[in-house]
Simulated assay, not measured.
Amino acid sequence: MDAPGISTGRHTTQRHSSAYLAAGDPDDPVLLLVHGWPEHARSWAGVMEPLAAAGYRVIAPDMRGYGASTVHPDPSDYSIEEGVADMIELLDHLGAAPGTATVVGHDYGAPVAWNLATHHPDRLAGVVGVCVPHTPPGTSLADHVDRRLYPVEDYPLGQWDYLVAHARMPERLAAEFDADVPGLLASIMRAGSPRALERPAPNASVRARGGWFPDGPPRHDPDPRVLDDAAFAALVADLERTGFAAANSWYRNNRENDAYAARAVTGGRIAVPALFVHARWDAVCATLTTTAADPMRAACDDLTEEIVDAGHWVAQEQPEALVAALRGWLSRGSA
Results as ranks from 00 to 15, higher is better:
Leu124Val: 03
Val71Lys: 15
Glu89Gly: 15
Gly105Phe: 00
Gly105Ala: 09
Ala110Tyr: 04
Pro137Thr: 15
Ala142Cys: 10
Ser140Gly: 14
His93Tyr: 09
Gly83Thr: 07
Ala125Leu: 03
Ser79Tyr: 04
Tyr66Pro: 00
Leu149Ile: 13
Val128Ser: 09
Pro73Trp: 10
Pro98Ala: 02
Gly99Met: 01
Asp86Asn: 15
Asp122Tyr: 00
Gly105Met: 06
Tyr162Arg: 10
Pro73Tyr: 08
Pro151Arg: 12
Asp77Ile: 06
Pro133Ser: 14
Asn115Trp: 01
Val112Arg: 02
Leu116Tyr: 01
Ala110Trp: 06
His119Ala: 13
Gly65Glu: 03
Asp146Ile: 08
Leu90Ala: 13
Gly138Lys: 11
Pro121Met: 08
Gly105Glu: 02
Asp122Trp: 00
Asn115Cys: 09
Asp77Cys: 11
Asp161Arg: 08
Pro136Asn: 12
Ser76Tyr: 00
His144Arg: 13
Gly95Glu: 03
Asp146Arg: 12
Pro151Gln: 09
Ala142Asp: 07
Leu149Lys: 13
Leu91Phe: 01
Gly67Ile: 01
Met63Ala: 10
Ala117Gln: 05
Glu82Asp: 09
Val127Ala: 12
Val128Trp: 02
Thr135Trp: 05
Leu149Trp: 05
Met63Gly: 12
Ile88Leu: 12
Val145Ala: 05
Met87Ile: 10
Thr139Tyr: 04
Trp160Met: 15
Asp86Ile: 05
Leu157Cys: 03
Thr102Met: 06
Asp107Ile: 00
Pro111Asn: 09
Val84Met: 06
Gly99Phe: 00
Glu81Asp: 15
Thr100Asp: 01
Glu81Ile: 00
Val103Gln: 04
Pro136Lys: 05
Val103Met: 09
Glu153His: 14
Leu90Phe: 03
Ala96Leu: 03
Gly99Ala: 05
Met63Thr: 10
Gly126Phe: 00
Ala68Glu: 15
Pro151His: 05
Gly138His: 10
Val112Ser: 00
Pro136Cys: 12
Val128Phe: 06
Met63Tyr: 01
Asp86Glu: 12
His72Val: 08
Trp160Leu: 15
His134Ser: 13
Arg123Pro: 08
Ala68Pro: 07
Ala68Tyr: 04
Ala85Tyr: 00
Asp86Gly: 13
Ala117His: 04
Val104His: 02
Ala97Tyr: 00
Ser69Asn: 11
Leu124Phe: 01
Gly95His: 01
Leu91Cys: 11
Ala96Asp: 03
Val145Pro: 10
Val130His: 04
His93Cys: 06
Leu141Asn: 10
Val132Arg: 10
Glu82Phe: 02
Cys131Ile: 08
Asp107Lys: 02
Val112Cys: 03
Ile80His: 09
Pro133His: 13
His93Gln: 12
Tyr162Met: 07
Pro75Asn: 09
Pro75Gly: 11
Leu90His: 04
Leu141Gly: 13
Tyr78Leu: 11
Gly109Phe: 00
Gly95Met: 09
Val128Pro: 13
Glu153Phe: 06
Ile80Ser: 14
Val103Pro: 02
Leu141Gln: 14
Leu124Thr: 02
Asp92Asn: 10
Trp114Glu: 08
Pro111Cys: 13
Gly109Ala: 05
Val71Cys: 15
Ser140Trp: 09
Pro121Glu: 12
Gly129Trp: 01
His120Ala: 15
Gly65Ala: 07
Leu124Gln: 03
Asp122Met: 02
Leu94Phe: 07
Pro156Phe: 04
Gly65Val: 05
Gly158Thr: 11
His72Ile: 01
Asp92Gln: 03
Tyr66Lys: 03
Gly67Cys: 08
